[in-house]
């Protein structure tokens, strides 16, 4: 049509990022967090479980945030902790997507009895407060990081299924789906090739929001002693130590608390940013 149409999608998105300072900030923070997690071993001055000084050293040029109750460098442990958090966040959200998205697509596409059964099941699962369900599962499966990931992921499955099902339900009536049927496409083909590409942006946005929730839940479970076990450098476990020693060394909790807060904030903002960037019908001024 006009020259605006000549821009490729990618360039359009790029322009939206550059023009919005909040998008730029959010994306840089996400990049920073991810890079920290990936290169934790190179960035952290000391190892995660390395005893480097006396306990409870105050912050110095050598130990930026001081040392913890057994003399490990707190700053280094926070950096290593980002890896635990982001890994759990990613892996558990991936579980939710891998199971929740197909459930939602099938449920919305076929409707009728399939849909009723699936939706009543999710009704039941959604009646559990998320952390309670996760706690129950971890309690039964055993407390370790792998089970934490499974529990957090499973809790989020019905949420993904619900969201995707709603979208699939409205999309399946579209004429391009009927056109696909007229071409002789199978149900699997239509769900996979016609419905799914139209769901990617909403799934992506939900992914980031679920990711934030997963990071939060992992820290909570570890704080309760049901997640990562010592000496793993989980922010939640570090917060637990901080809380235990709050009357003698109140600052211990601050680093881990801030790290959790910032990560959750950044990924929540990323959800807003993606919603804005991926809207194909938005017109740029």
């Amino acid at each position: 049509m006009t020259s605006a149409a000549q821009f490729s999608e990618r360039r359009k998105i790029w322009r939206r990022i550059v023009r919005n300072p909040l998008h730029l900030f959010t994306l840089s923070m996400v990049a920073l967090l991810v890079l920290t997690a990936v290169f934790a071993d190179l960035l952290a001055p000391y190892g995660a479980t390395e005893v480097v000084a006396y306990p409870f050293e105050l912050p110095t040029g050598q130990f930026w945030l001081g040392t913890d109750s057994i003399g490990r460098d707190i700053f280094s442990r926070l950096i290593h902790g980002s890896r635990v958090s982001l890994y759990v966040g990613f892996a558990s959200t991936a579980i939710a997507v891998v199971f929740g998205v197909p459930m939602g697509v099938v449920s919305g596409y076929f409707g009728k009895l399939t849909d009723t059964l699936m939706m009543r099941t999710t009704d039941g699962l959604l009646a559990f407060p998320p952390i309670i369900l996760a706690m129950a599962m971890v309690a039964v499966l055993g407390t370790n990081l792998r089970n934490t990931i499974i529990a957090i992921g499973v809790v989020q499955i019905p949420r993904f299924a619900r969201l995707v099902r709603g979208m699939a339900l409205s999309l399946k009536e579209s004429e391009f789906i009927t056109a696909g049927r007229a071409l002789g496409a199978s149900h699997v083909y239509l769900m996979q090739r016609s419905l799914l590409p139209n769901l990617t942006s909403i799934i992506l946005v939900q992914f980031t929001l679920t990711f934030a929730t997963a990071v939060l839940t992992e820290a909570a479970l570890s704080f309760l002693g049901l997640g990562a076990q010592p000496p793993a450098p989980s922010w939640g476990s570090m917060l637990l130590v901080g809380k235990t020693l709050v009357s003698t060394n109140p600052y211990l909790a601050l680093g881990a608390g801030s790290a959790i807060f910032i990560t959750v904030l950044v990924f929540t903002l990323l959800g807003d940013t993606l919603t804005d960037l991926l809207n194909p019908y938005r017109t740029d001024r």
């Binding site: 909570a220 704080f223 807060f261």
Partner: peptide, 11 residues
């Protein structure tokens, strides 16, 4: 919105 209750509580 992003403040975890437990971080707030410990604060």
């Amino acid at each position: 919105f992003s403040m975890p209750t437990y971080v707030m509580g410990i604060g």
